[in-house]
Simulated scan of single mutants.
Amino acid sequence: MKIFAQISYGLSGLFVLLGLYKLYAYKNDDYDNLINAYVEGDAWNMLINKGFATSYFLLALVCVVTGTSIFVYEKLNAIHRTLKGEPEPIVEDSSDDVEYN
């Protein structure tokens, strides 16, 4: 499950970069070289890009919370197994099989 947390953190980094791109990359010179321009007015384009950036930042926050929740769940699960007296699972990176001591 640790891989899912790492993927979640990676996605959050991607969403932050996409949000920053929407905020700072803008060009509305002519109709051939438009960057993050949707309508003719600059103010409207900035409002649209601000909405997109906010959405990407919110997705990044959700991914960070999800990844952190997975790490906390794994740690609490390990503590619970220790208190119950169950052996710790040994997980090798090369295979998905779980062995017990």
Rank of each mutant, 00 (worst) to 15 (best):
G51T: 11
K2C: 01
Y24A: 07
Y24K: 02
A78Q: 11
E86W: 14
D93F: 12
N49W: 08
Y100L: 12
L61T: 11
R81Q: 14
D93R: 14
Y56P: 01
I35V: 13
N33V: 09
S12V: 00
I3V: 13
G19F: 09
M46S: 05
K50A: 15
V72W: 01
I3T: 09
E74Y: 08
L14E: 05
I79F: 06
R81W: 04
D30E: 14
Y38I: 09
A5C: 00
F52T: 08
N45P: 11
D97N: 12
N77K: 08
G67A: 04
K27R: 14
V62P: 01
E99A: 01
I48W: 15
L11F: 13
L59P: 01
E99Q: 04
E88K: 12
Y26G: 03
N36F: 13
K50D: 11
I79W: 14
H80W: 07
K27M: 02
K75G: 10
V39H: 10
Y31D: 10
P87W: 05
L11N: 11
L11E: 07
V65M: 13
F57Q: 06
D42C: 06
A78H: 07
I7Q: 10
M46I: 10
L83Y: 07
D93N: 13
G85Q: 02
L61C: 09
Y100S: 07
S8A: 06
L18I: 03
E86A: 10
Y56E: 06
S12F: 00
F57T: 00
F71M: 06
A5I: 00
V16G: 01
E88T: 10
F4N: 00
F57P: 04
G67E: 06
P87V: 02
S69Q: 11
L23V: 09
I35L: 09
D97G: 02
L59M: 08
I90A: 02
A78R: 13
K50Q: 08
I70A: 04
E74C: 03
V64C: 02
N77H: 08
A60C: 02
L11T: 06
D29K: 12
L34F: 12
L20I: 02
S8F: 01
C63N: 07
S95R: 07
M1Y: 07
A43D: 13
S94K: 10
S95L: 03
V62Y: 05
Y38S: 05
N49L: 04
K84Q: 11
F71T: 01
N101L: 12
I48C: 09
K27V: 04
S94E: 11
N49R: 15
A43Q: 13
F4H: 00
I79P: 03
P87G: 04
N45H: 09
I70P: 01
E88C: 05
F15T: 00
M46D: 05
I35D: 05
K75L: 15
P87D: 05
A78T: 11
D97L: 06
C63H: 10
V64F: 08
L20W: 10
N33H: 15
A60Y: 03
S12H: 04
V91W: 05
G10K: 09
P89C: 05
N77P: 01
Q6T: 03
K22A: 15
V62Q: 08
N33Y: 15
L20K: 05
D29V: 12
I3Y: 05
K50G: 13
I3R: 14
D30A: 14
D93G: 13
V72N: 07
Y21H: 11
